[in-house]
Computed example of a mutant assay.
Amino acid sequence: MLFPVENAYALMQFEQENLSRKIIHELKYRSRETTGKILADWVIERLDFKKEKPDLLVTVPLHPKKEKERGYNQLHLFTKVLSDFYTVPFDHHLFKRNHYSKAQALKDKKHRLETQHTFSLIKNVSNQHILIIDDVFTTGNTLATIAWEILKAGNNKVSILVMAVDE
């Protein structure tokens, strides 16, 4: 099921001990990158850009150290599959993560809110409709921080797609 919200889409609910949590953890922590392709195929079955197709897909970046630890960014294959299907370019290097930190899932709610200065826009972008892609929406701070950087950069529009929502 895809949960549409004004300019936002979520594929699954992310609940304690449910299948969606297990799927995301397989993708992120157990080197099951191909799970991203399966999830992208689910999105393709459910998402139609009838009203407005984005101009660019971007992913929430991992810090280089964390990407090296995992061996990949869990969002890249997912985004590539969507990019190929919808013929929308992607840019995994529009942003950089400025600080290495432990996973959001390991932080308490107070520390999850600390995202100021976490990301930097490293390329100029203007007059674009940008779809930001992330795995799990928890507090919304990560996506809000990135969206704000995009909106400050120029006459841009932002939409959001997440694999799961943790309520």
Rank of each mutant, 00 (worst) to 15 (best):
F78Q: 14
M12N: 13
P64D: 11
F137Q: 10
L161D: 13
L161T: 04
I130N: 07
S120V: 04
L113N: 08
D41Q: 14
L11N: 12
D41G: 01
Y29R: 02
V125H: 09
Q16K: 14
N155Y: 02
T118D: 11
D134V: 11
V158H: 08
H99A: 08
D108S: 14
K28C: 07
T142D: 15
I160R: 06
V136I: 14
G140Q: 05
D48N: 13
I133Q: 12
V58C: 09
T115G: 05
K96L: 06
K80Y: 04
I133E: 11
F90I: 08
W42G: 03
P4A: 09
I23M: 13
S126M: 03
L94K: 02
I122V: 15
E114K: 04
S20Q: 04
K80L: 08
K28E: 14
T115E: 09
G36E: 06
H99G: 00
F3W: 08
K37T: 10
L75Q: 13
F3L: 09
N73Q: 10
V162A: 13
N73R: 01
H25V: 07
K157I: 12
K68W: 08
L62I: 00
S101Y: 00
K68S: 12
Y9V: 11
L121H: 05
Q116K: 07
K96P: 03
T145M: 09
D108M: 06
K22P: 00
A8Y: 02
V162Q: 06
Q16C: 10
A40L: 03
P4G: 05
E67Q: 12
D166R: 07
I130Y: 10
V158S: 14
K50S: 15
V60D: 12
I133H: 08
T79Y: 05
R30Y: 11
